[in-house]
């Protein structure tokens, strides 16, 4: 029914989309792991990253790598600042207070962007060498796709090394498991939380570049959809777990592409409904996600 090359092509597409979801999901998951906060402003940091990348591409002669790296650094800083100003004062308050605050932060970032830059979508034009189509055997993809997947995998390897080999990284896992015990061990949790926000936000900025390049235009509300999908991915994988976020991101990427690619075209409008159905199915079988770790924290 479907030719092998077609299936291979869909696999490549799923890999590309999954890489983006995974990067965004990681940030949501590490912050949730430590603070039990569903950070609704996370997708908006992806948007900020995309705008910064565009500004660098248009206004500077910096190499392309800088248009990815600099937004990651700046948005990482923005993430730390948001935590410091908006979330830290609410530490110890009921979890719902922080949740509502994150909605407010999201609104502030979106509307701040509209006020300073306008709500008009802008073309996100990439240099020719990134748009060029590559052929590898039977499948084709843009250079951007290849770079996106490679960069995502590289960043995830880096993150894995960080949380397994470094003092602060191990402390991050310790905090996610038992925040009080971590404090009793002398871990400065504010420092660890700042790291979590910096890393998560930087990954979102990288994903912002990929997402913007994929769709060719950016606008102030562009962070909503990938943010929501990444949340679904994080929950499927087991929110709080980093490997879970990666797995969930790729699963969702593949599932979405396959849904659109293998079912009748008239159903493709339902892709988001399909995504949530998938979430419900996973949660019915494994209520805490595929790779959930540890017990639910008390108090």
């Amino acid at each position: 029914m479907f030719s092998l090359p077609y299936i291979a092509q869909q696999l490549v597409n799923g890999l590309t989309l999954g890489s983006i979801y995974a990067l965004v999901a990681i940030g949501l998951s590490i912050v949730y792991g430590i603070l039990r906060l569903i950070n609704f402003a996370h997708g908006d940091l992806l948007m900020v990253g995309a705008y910064l990348a565009l500004a660098l591409l248009l206004n500077t002669a910096l190499p392309l790598g800088a248009a990815v790296l600099l937004p990651m650094i700046i948005v990482g800083g923005v993430g730390v600042l948001v935590e410091r100003l908006a979330y830290r004062p609410l530490r110890g308050a009921p979890e719902v207070a922080m949740l509502i605050t994150s909605l407010a932060v999201s609104s502030v970032i979106q509307n701040g962007t509209i006020m300073t830059l306008s709500a008009q979508p802008r073309a996100f034009r990439l240099p020719q060498e990134l748009i060029a189509q590559q052929k590898l055997g039977v499948v084709s993809f843009s250079t951007l796709d290849a770079v996106s997947v490679a960069l995502a995998v590289f960043l995830m390897v880096l993150l894995t090394l960080f949380v397994t080999r470094t003092r602060v990284g191990i402390a991050m896992r310790a905090c996610a498991e038992n925040l009080r015990a971590a404090r009793l061990m002398g871990i400065n949790i504010n420092q660890v939380i700042a790291y979590a926000f910096a890393i998560g936000s930087a990954l979102a900025a990288a994903a912002g570049f990929m997402w913007a390049g994929r769709f060719g235009s950016i606008e102030p509300f562009m962070g909503f959809l990938p943010g929501l999908k990444a949340f679904v991915a994080a929950v499927i994988g087991g929110i709080g777990s980093i490997p879970g976020a990666m797995l969930g991101g790729y699963l969702l990427g593949f599932a979405e592409i396959f849904f659109v690619g293998f079912l009748p075209p008239e159903l493709s409008g339902y892709r988001d409904a399909f995504v949530f159905t998938l979430l419900l199915l996973v949660l019915l079988i494994r209520p805490r996600g595929l790779l959930a770790t540890g017990a639910e924290r008390e108090g």
Binding site: R167, I170, A171, R173, A174, E177, N178, R180, A181, A182, L184, M185, G186, I187, N188, T293, G294
Partner: peptide
């Protein structure tokens, strides 16, 4: 240093990682 009630070790970390967390600072 405080060894809390109910142990509260980090179950998802290795024994060695737990020990290193004790020496965090």
């Amino acid at each position: 240093s405080h060894c809390p009630e109910g142990r509260q070790i980090f179950t998802g970390l290795t024994v060695m990682e737990n020990l290193l967390m004790g020496a965090y600072h």
